[in-house]
Structure formats: structure tokens, C-alpha cells
């Protein structure tokens, strides 16, 4: 596991971020508690709590799934968004909700899980389980391009005239105005998914020895592969169906997490989930700093923070290869 001091530091930072997410701006809610406690309670429980909880859990899911996918593909550049899983989930949810008319959270989540699963299975069959970085990225880019085009097309063709305006939410993510019920349909699958992924941490660590060595030690790689992909699809599919696709956290969090686990890719799943939760909650705080009346998609914030990091990662890999 990761060093205790880091663990404590991350938990404290998480508590601060979650607290700020619940209470900011400070002059608002505390004053309301004094004047109208029941309204304040309603706002806190019905509006603030789902948003904070979604930021924490969706962030954790992105981080944990990113670490698991990177371990599975033996590639530090894999992540739910880059592999097309998030895009597939968004497409699945949009088709289910807007074209088939199952717009309740259960319908959306189911569509999201199926979409994510199809995208990951497609990626695996295109790129193979131990893909070169270039193959993996190209296959992921192709899947993401197709899913984002089809998502936009589905929204344009949807019977509702306002559907097209939702495109931003699906492609860039949003945690705003989710109900407690909606949040539960994301959080329950996320918890299930993260618990199951943690159980495969040891097998994924062993996979770091190479597929042959892991197989010779009795690990059934095909079963492991299927289990991780289905588990990731459940968590990512449901959370994208509720919050839309958010990029880069699934890429960034595992890289930091592995620094805390001395490079072990499997046991980085837990720390990556904590770091992902911290990153998304912090990104959501930045979103709220947008000028009054303007809505900043959360995916824009994570992309603006994450994309330079991605470039740095690519540059460092190139440098590693040349040196």
C-alpha cells in the first residue's frame, strides 16, 4: 500500500474539498441556516450533497478504472476516456434515453454500461491485450471519434427539440442539478465496481511480470481480462450515464498513484481512486468559480489541467525510449 503519510494527506485534502463543495460560498448556506433552517437543509441534502457525492465517487471511479485499465493493457497511457469507454457509455446512455425513450436513471445507466462494454470489447479486439502504445491510442481515438459523432447525431435526431443542447453535458460532463435518486444510480455501481476492481489488484500486479509469467503462476488471464472489463464498464457506464464523460482524470490519477505504490500497477487502484476523487472534487470547485450565470463544463476544466500533463507524459515516454 501507499505510504501512510500520503494516505493521511490525501484524505485530509479530500475532506477539505468535500467540505468546501458542500458549504461554498460561505456567506450563503450558513446565513440561510440561521434564517430558514428547513430550506437550508433541503438545499444541502437535495442539491449540494448529490453534487459533492458525485464528484467524489465519479472521480474515484475514473481514477480506479484508469489504474485497472492501465494495468490490464500494460500501458500507462490507457484510461476510460482514451480507450473510448467513456464515449461508448455516453453514446449508450444517449441512445437509450433520447431515441428509445428510457430517460429514467435506470434506463440511462443500463444504456451507459452496455455502451462502455461494447467500446472496451471493440478496443480489445482491435488493439489486443498487450497493445503497443500507438495501436492502443489509435484504436481509442477511432472509437472516441465514432462515439462522439454518433452521440451528437443521436441528440440532433432526438424527438425533443432541446436534446441537442445537452450535447455539452454528455461530451464534457456535468455534475450540476443531479437528484439524489440519479446520484444513487451512479454511486451504487461505482462502489460495486471499485470493490471488485480492488479484489483483482494482486492479479493485476502479477500481470506486471508479463502475461506469460502471470499465466505460469496460475492466473487465468482471459477470465481476469473479461472480469476487469465488465467491472470497469459497470462503474464507468453508470457514472457517465448520470454525469456525462469527463476526461483526463482516469489518465492522471493512476500516474500519481503508482508513485505511491513503487510502480505496482494493481495495488495503485485504491490510491488512484482517492486521487481521482480529490481531482474531480477540486475541478468542480473551479467550475463553481465561473462568473455568475455562466456554466463551465467540468470536462473543460479537467481537460485544461489534464491535457498538458498528457503531453508531458508522452514527451517523457519518448525521452525514456531515446535514452
Amino acid at each position: 500500500m501507499m505510504p501512510r503519510v500520503w494516505f493521511v494527506a490525501i484524505i485530509i485534502a479530500l475532506l477539505f474539498a468535500a467540505g468546501a463543495s458542500l458549504l461554498l460560498p460561505f456567506e450563503g448556506l450558513p446565513r440561510l441556516i440561521a434564517s430558514d433552517p428547513s430550506l437550508a437543509t433541503t438545499i444541502a441534502i437535495e442539491i449540494r450533497l448529490p453534487r459533492t457525492a458525485l464528484a467524489l465517487f465519479y472521480g474515484a471511479m475514473l481514477g480506479g478504472a484508469g489504474a485497472a485499465i492501465q494495468a490490464l493493457f500494460a500501458n500507462p497511457l490507457a484510461s476510460p476516456d482514451i480507450t473510448g469507454a467513456s464515449g461508448g457509455a455516453a453514446l449508450g446512455a444517449v441512445v437509450t434515453g433520447y431515441l428509445f425513450g428510457f430517460a429514467g436513471p435506470f434506463g440511462l445507466a443500463t444504456g451507459g454500461v452496455i455502451g462502455a462494454l461494447l467500446a472496451l470489447v471493440l478496443l480489445l479486439s482491435l488493439a489486443g491485450s498487450h497493445a503497443e502504445t500507438a495501436t492502443l491510442l489509435l484504436a481509442g481515438i477511432a472509437i472516441s471519434a465514432v462515439t462522439s459523432a454518433l452521440t451528437t447525431l443521436s441528440l440532433a435526431l432526438a424527438p425533443s427539440p432541446f436534446a441537442f443542447y445537452d450535447a455539452y453535458d454528455w461530451l464534457m460532463g456535468s455534475l450540476v442539478d443531479r437528484s439524489r435518486n440519479q446520484a444513487l444510480f451512479a454511486i451504487a455501481p461505482i462502489l460495486l465496481s471499485l470493490i471488485l476492481l480492488r479484489r483483482d489488484a494482486r492479479a493485476l500486479d502479477t500481470l506486471a511480470l508479463g502475461e506469460e509469467a502471470a499465466a505460469s503462476m496460475g492466473y487465468d488471464l482471459r477470465t481476469l481480462q473479461r472480469r476487469v472489463i465488465v467491472t470497469v464498464a459497470v462503474g464507468i457506464g453508470a457514472s457517465v450515464a448520470i454525469c456525462g464523460a469527463v476526461g483526463f482524470i482516469g489518465l492522471v490519477a493512476p500516474v500519481f498513484a503508482r508513485r505511491l505504490t513503487r510502480g505496482h500497477p494493481g495495488r495503485a487502484i485504491g490510491p488512484a481512486a482517492l486521487i481521482g476523487a480529490l481531482l474531480l472534487t477540486t475541478a468542480d470547485l473551479l467550475v463553481r468559480a465561473a462568473p455568475e450565470g455562466r456554466i463551465l463544463p467540468i470536462g473543460v476544466v479537467t481537460a485544461m489541467l489534464g491535457a498538458p500533463f498528457f503531453l508531458w507524459l508522452v514527451a517523457r515516454m519518448r525521452w525514456d525510449i531515446r535514452s
Partner: peptide, 23 residues
């Protein structure tokens, strides 16, 4: 299974490549 197989069999693959920066 994993625990028992490694007690009975040690296997060295031909590949010397490593993907992760482990010590």
C-alpha cells in the same frame, strides 16, 4: 490455482521486457 502452481512450477519466459518501473 495461483498459490499452488508457483510452488510446483517455476517458469522463465523468453521475453526480458518489463512494462512497469518496479524495483
Amino acid at each position: 490455482g495461483p498459490a499452488n502452481r508457483a510452488r510446483h512450477l517455476g517458469y522463465l519466459p523468453a521475453s526480458r521486457d518489463m512494462d512497469w518501473p518496479l524495483t
